[in-house]
C-alpha cells in the first residue's frame, strides 16, 4: 500500500503563501521527504520549509570554471607558443600576462554553461511531461493558488492517510494523482 507505481502522489491546493509555508513545514516535520510545492512565483523561505538543503549547482559551476581556465590556457599555449608562434611587439610567443583576459573569459563562459546546464540537469530539465499536469487545479498554480504534492515514492506515503493529512492542514481539492 505504501508504494504504488500507478500513482504520482497526493496534491492539495492552498490559498495563501502563509498557508503553503505552514503546510510545507508541517509536512516535512511529519517525516515526509518527497514533498514539493508548485507556486505562481518564488515564495520566500519555501525551500527551507521543504527542507531542500543547499543547491549543488555551485560545485558544478566551480568545476566548469576551473575547466575553462585549464582549457583556455592549453588553447593559447598550443596555438601561440607551439603550433604557430608569432612575435608581436617583442613579446614572447606565450606570455602569461596576455593570456589572463582570455583565460578569464573562458572561465566565465564555461562557468555560465555549468550554471545553466547544471541547473537543467539537477532539475531533470527539459521535461515535457510531469504527472502534476493531471491534477484538476494545476492551472491555478500559474495564477493564484499554491500546490503541495506528497509523492507516492515517499516511504511514509499512504493513499488515504496522506490525503487526510493534507486535508487537515487546510488543503482544498485534495486529489490522488495518477502517474
Amino acid at each position: 500500500m505504501s508504494h504504488d507505481k500507478r500513482y504520482f502522489g497526493v496534491v492539495a491546493e492552498f490559498e495563501t503563501t502563509g498557508a503553503i509555508l505552514d503546510a510545507a513545514t508541517k509536512a516535512t516535520a511529519e517525516g515526509y521527504t518527497k514533498v514539493d510545492a508548485h507556486t505562481p512565483f518564488p515564495v520566500h523561505g519555501l525551500e527551507r520549509a521543504l527542507k531542500q538543503g543547499p543547491s549543488h549547482v555551485g560545485w558544478i559551476v566551480a568545476a566548469c570554471g576551473l575547466l575553462g581556465i585549464v582549457l583556455g590556457q592549453l588553447m593559447m599555449w598550443w596555438m601561440n607558443g607551439v603550433d604557430y608562434p608569432i612575435v608581436v611587439s617583442g613579446k614572447p610567443p606565450y606570455a602569461w600576462q596576455s593570456t589572463i583576459p582570455i583565460t578569464f573569459e573562458c572561465m566565465v563562459l564555461l562557468a555560465a554553461f555549468g550554471a545553466v546546464f547544471g541547473m537543467f540537469g539537477l532539475n531533470r530539465l527539459p521535461r515535457l511531461y510531469h504527472p502534476i499536469f493531471k491534477y484538476s487545479q494545476v492551472h491555478r498554480a500559474t495564477d493564484d493558488r499554491f500546490l503541495l504534492s506528497i509523492e507516492a515514492t515517499d516511504p511514509r506515503f499512504d493513499q488515504v492517510k496522506t490525503a487526510e493529512f493534507l486535508r487537515r492542514l487546510g488543503g482544498h481539492h485534495v486529489e490522488l494523482v495518477e502517474e
Binding site: 611587439s89 617583442g90 613579446k91 596576455s98
Partner: peptide
C-alpha cells in the same frame, strides 16, 4: 591592479 599592469606591460 592587473589591468594597470597589463596595459603598461603591453605598451612597454
Amino acid at each position: 591592479t592587473f589591468s594597470q599592469y597589463m596595459l603598461i606591460w603591453y605598451a612597454n
